[in-house]
């Protein structure tokens, strides 16, 4: 049973991030919820590559035949984190600019032009 719980955690984090975004009233809060949803992917990626009782895949003091966790997922999560951080930064810059031009950061009051 604990096995499935390990994977329910990232699913829950993702979904709660989405819900936070759906009900958000502040753009910075929205971007942070996006960050939360993204962190669910980090958790999932790293969980998938884990091995119980294994060491890190750095073989400076152990032989490379020792049981180690998956290095590929760790490299993938590194890429993912950088992507996530930069997208968050970009969105925050957008939020800042929107505040300067529209005077509000409430998504419900921000409607682009229609035609």
């Amino acid at each position: 049973m604990i096995g499935l719980l390990a994977f329910v955690v990232p699913a829950w984090i993702f979904v709660i991030g989405l819900y936070g975004m759906a009900t958000s009233r502040h753009l910075v809060h929205l971007v942070m919820c996006l960050s939360v949803a993204q962190s669910a992917t980090y958790v999932l990626i790293l969980e998938v590559g884990y091995r119980l009782g294994a060491t890190a895949p750095v073989f400076s003091d152990v032989l490379s035949t020792v049981r180690a966790t998956d290095p590929v997922v760790q490299a993938l999560s590194l890429t993912d984190i950088v992507v996530g951080a930069t997208v968050s930064a970009l969105l925050l810059a957008f939020a800042l600019r929107i505040y300067k031009t529209c005077g509000t950061v409430d998504p419900e009051e921000l409607r682009p032009m229609r035609g």
Partner: peptide, 8 residues
């Protein structure tokens, strides 16, 4: 509507 939370 143009509201981003609706799109989510």
């Amino acid at each position: 509507s143009g509201i981003v939370t609706d799109y989510v």
